[in-house]
C-alpha cells in the first residue's frame, strides 16, 4: 500500500515537471493524432485551411485564421476585436510556439470553434501543426 502511494506521488511529480522541447511537444501530439486516425500530415493542406474564409453570423461575418494571425506566420498578428498584439506563430521567429501541448489544444479548440463554427478534426490539427512548424516552406 505504502509503495503504491509512493509510486503514484512520484509519478505525479515527474509528469508535472516535464518540459517538452519544441519538437518533442509536436512529436507527442502528432503521435496522439496518429493513434486517433491521422497517420500522416500535409502542410499544404494546413496552409489551405489557414487562409480559408468561413461565413459566420454576427460580428466578423467572414472569419479566417488570418483574421488575427495574418498570412505571414513569421510576423506578429493582432486580435480582430481587441487589437491586442499576438506574437508570431512560427517557432522560427517565436521559440515558445508549439512547446506546450495544453496550450496548443486550448487554442485549437477555441479558435477552430470561433473560425469554423466547430472543433477541428485530428487530421486538420495535424496538418495545421505541420504548416505552423515550417510555414515558409509552403
Amino acid at each position: 500500500m505504502k509503495t503504491h502511494i509512493l509510486v503514484t506521488v512520484s509519478l505525479l511529480f515527474s509528469s508535472a515537471s516535464i518540459t517538452l522541447a519544441n519538437s518533442e511537444a509536436m512529436d507527442t501530439l502528432l503521435q496522439t493524432y496518429a493513434a486517433q486516425g491521422a497517420a500522416t500530415t500535409n502542410a499544404e493542406q494546413g496552409k489551405r485551411l489557414w487562409v480559408k474564409t468561413y461565413q459566420n453570423k454576427g460580428e466578423f461575418s467572414e472569419r479566417s485564421c488570418t483574421s488575427c494571425h495574418t498570412q505571414d506566420l513569421t510576423a506578429p498578428g493582432k486580435h480582430a476585436k481587441t487589437g491586442k498584439i499576438i506574437k508570431s506563430m512560427s517557432p522560427s521567429s517565436n521559440p515558445e510556439r508549439l512547446t506546450d501541448i495544453k496550450k496548443i489544444e486550448k487554442w485549437f479548440k477555441r479558435n477552430c470553434k470561433w473560425t469554423m463554427g466547430r472543433e477541428c478534426t485530428v487530421q486538420e490539427k495535424a496538418n495545421f501543426l505541420a504548416y505552423i512548424d515550417k510555414p515558409t516552406n509552403f
Binding site: 454576427g58 460580428e59 476585436k81
Partner: peptide, 12 residues
C-alpha cells in the same frame, strides 16, 4: 465563456 463578447474563451 464559449460566447465571450463574441469570442470563444473556453477554459478547462
Amino acid at each position: 465563456l464559449e460566447n465571450h463578447f463574441g469570442d470563444n474563451a473556453e477554459l478547462d
